[in-house]
Amino acid sequence: MTGPRNPSDIDHPSSADQKLPSHLSARTAGQGIPDEGSLERSDPGDEAASPTAETSNQVCGGAVVDATGLKTKELSDRLRDLMLAGTGRMIVKNACGQRYIGTRLYRPGQASLQIEIFGTPGNDLGAFLSGHRILVHGNVQDGVGNTMDRGEIVVEGRAGDVLGMSMRGGRIFVRDGVGYRTALHMKEYLDQKPVVVIGGTAQDFLGEYMAGGIVLVLDLGNRGHQSNFIGTGMHGGAIFLRGSVNLTQLGKEVEISAPGEEDHALLENLIHEFLIRFPELAARQEELQKSQFVKLTPVSKRPYGKMYAY
């Protein structure tokens, strides 16, 4: 049980004095140049290290919540209060394992919010997300975008297991690699077509039970796809892998083909969208556009259709 919340814990830009943390106000005013310490993204505890410098995805301004020492519900209480107060942009600093960030921000008719996270958010980031945009400057844990409906999650780092599980809409971009069972039972419906783009590679059971949507794995490290059991039980959607894959790595419900003309247009577009979000990789554009891809699609929409005696 949480005690009464203290509104003064929340820095809100609409407050009279536009109170912002010192480093932010300094940046906004165009004053000080960040010192060396501020370039160390790996130090989430350092206030000066936060939303600055080399991350072009940053959202300037917005209400800042320092997550240091906050429990999951305490943090989501604060974010929800910000939403109810009409805040459109939230910056979470020093996230450290707090789960479900973004999940509690549903309200009928609520406009899309921007949530920027520094640190390492916990499991189920953006679970049941319905239209918000989450940007994480760092790695994320398991269950990102679980049963997500709409919106976007961008991860400047790597992600854990079951990313995009049962996701039905929205997009997830991960700069580095992802864990096991990515896009498990992802589905689509009419214009809702989820997209997951992974800069690195994925572990085993990528796209298991997949029923819709698009997964693109770019393997920017040129390590080759090591994942096994790709697309086991798949019955919808498409997986694109840059480079090649052995047939032994695929589930028996999957067939492999070369992308067609329409697919190339789609891939070009997705690579473009990916590189917009990670401009530090812009130099790879030409290489990526020229690369070979393979397309994995289900053999049947009904893998288990003939199991039963009628």
Binding site: E188, Y209, G212
Partner: peptide, 16 residues
């Protein structure tokens, strides 16, 4: 919220 004419498969466990 699935395409018409596909099997709606509920896996045995919740995979999360």
């Amino acid at each position: 919220m699935i395409p018409e004419g596909t099997d709606a498969i509920s896996p045995a466990p919740h995979h999360d």
